[in-house]
């Protein structure tokens, strides 16, 4: 079984984001594999460990994104592909076209895993675009996965705790989220071994991908101000609660 996993190199969620210029940010912060993509890699690696085959990790990003491809190799992916660009915020249609070209150049996929969303641009759509461009079915927010007779059965988290059970013909695109599995931590020997695993790099232009005409362009970033210190209630529990309810009802009118 040949499985591709799409992994994005993103700033750590604990990192402080400092806006630079109109729509840039201080990129010297720590970067990691997009947290949702960890579930995608883990699921692919488990399948291949059980059934044989190979996992190919693909990333589109700046040259440093090679570190995220290596992280995927360190937790069990067999090979890596990095498509290099010069921006962290590539249009998701263009990203999908780049992923498609890189995947098809490598060989026919039997399954493609992605995360449900990247935590930097929060686009929530690259996997849909990839699937549409490749003519494959897609499901997102997947918390359970199984396969039988060349069909994938997934459970997708809906609002309010409901789950939709969906059957898709393979190959298909699966957007993973928390709950799908417990991603393993890489062990030191695996990190070292990962350095020897095959990893090819190419430029977006090498793939013949032109920037897509329809687009969602990020024109400006603005730091969100934290609220200041809270107004503290005083007195006994009863007094504090009464004061609070009174303010919620009359000052800010949310009750």
């Amino acid at each position: 079984m040949k499985i591709f996993v799409c992994v994005k190199h993103v700033p750590d969620t604990a990192a402080n984001i400092k806006v630079v210029g109109e729509n840039g940010f201080d990129e010297t912060v720590k970067f990691v594999m997009n947290p949702y993509d960890e579930y995608a890699v883990e699921e692919a690696v488990r399948i291949v460990q059980e059934q044989g085959g190979e996992v190919v990790a693909v990333s589109v990003g700046k040259p440093n994104a090679i570190n995220t491809v290596r992280s995927a190799l360190a937790v069990g992916a067999n090979r890596g592909i990095l498509v290099k660009t010069d921006t962290q915020f590539l249009d998701s249609t263009t990203t999908a076209l780049a992923l498609k070209a890189a995947i098809e150049q490598d060989g026919a996929p039997e399954l493609i895993f992605t995360g449900k969303q990247s935590v930097d641009s929060e686009g929530m759509q690259t996997h849909y675009r990839l699937a549409a461009k490749m003519g494959l079915p897609v499901a997102t927010d997947v918390v359970a996965f199984s396969m039988e007779n060349n069909k994938a059965v997934v459970e997708c988290e809906m609002g309010g705790g409901d789950r939709e059970v969906i059957e898709m013909a393979m190959p298909c695109v699966v957007g993973a989220t928390k709950g799908l599995n417990e991603p393993r931590y890489p062990k030191l020997p695996d990190i070292l071994k990962a350095k020897k695993k095959p990893l090819v790099e190419m430029d977006l232009a090498d793939l013949g991908v032109a920037a897509s005409p329809v687009s969602a362009a990020m024109t400006s970033l603005t730091q969100v101000k934290e609220r200041g210190a809270a107004t503290m209630m005083k007195g006994s529990v009863q007094e504090m609660v009464e004061d609070l309810v009174n303010r919620l009802e009359n000052d800010v009118k949310v009750l």
Binding site: P11, F25, E122, V214, S215, S220, L221
Partner: peptide, 20 residues
């Protein structure tokens, strides 16, 4: 055709210009 949405898990907002 512009929207404001969250980027970086709510640490910043981004202006997005949609063209099409």
């Amino acid at each position: 055709g512009t929207v404001v949405k969250s980027h970086f898990s709510g640490k910043t907002t981004a202006d997005i210009k949609l063209t099409g």
